[in-house]
């Protein structure tokens, strides 16, 4: 039997969502208000990013920037450092909401 004999393969992502994979509960007294704070912060940030991205996509189209050009983009060390700093700021904010 080889790999190609499998008609429909179970994807790794679907294995992660298997209902048998029960997530334990570690937080005894879940403060739903804190969870709502964190969720809304994340939703706001996603909305900000989406709006910003729209601007870039519109400008990019005008300048002939293709999907292939976006996929082959390589971040410079400066861009990479900026991203790392931004991610940490976001995580710090969400974790502080949950504390």
């Amino acid at each position: 039997m080889n790999k190609f004999d499998v008609v429909e393969r179970t994807s790794v992502v679907s294995m992660m969502h298997d209902p048998k994979r029960v997530r334990p509960q570690f937080i005894r007294e879940l403060d739903m208000d804190k969870v709502v704070d964190a969720l809304l912060r994340l939703t706001m940030e996603i909305s900000v990013i989406r709006d910003r991205l729209d601007i870039y996509e519109a400008l990019g189209e005008q300048c002939g920037i293709t999907d292939a050009a976006i996929e082959s983009f390589k971040a410079t060390p400066e861009i990479d450092a900026r991203r790392r700093e931004r991610r940490e700021r976001l995580i710090r904010g969400v974790i502080s909401d949950l504390r």
């Binding site: 790999k3 790794v12 294995m15």
Partner: peptide, 15 residues
């Protein structure tokens, strides 16, 4: 790791 280190759906599964 989902499935563990020995997981295979077929003899040739590299996942």
């Amino acid at each position: 790791q989902p499935g563990g280190y020995f997981y295979r759906q077929s003899q040739a599964d590299l996942s």
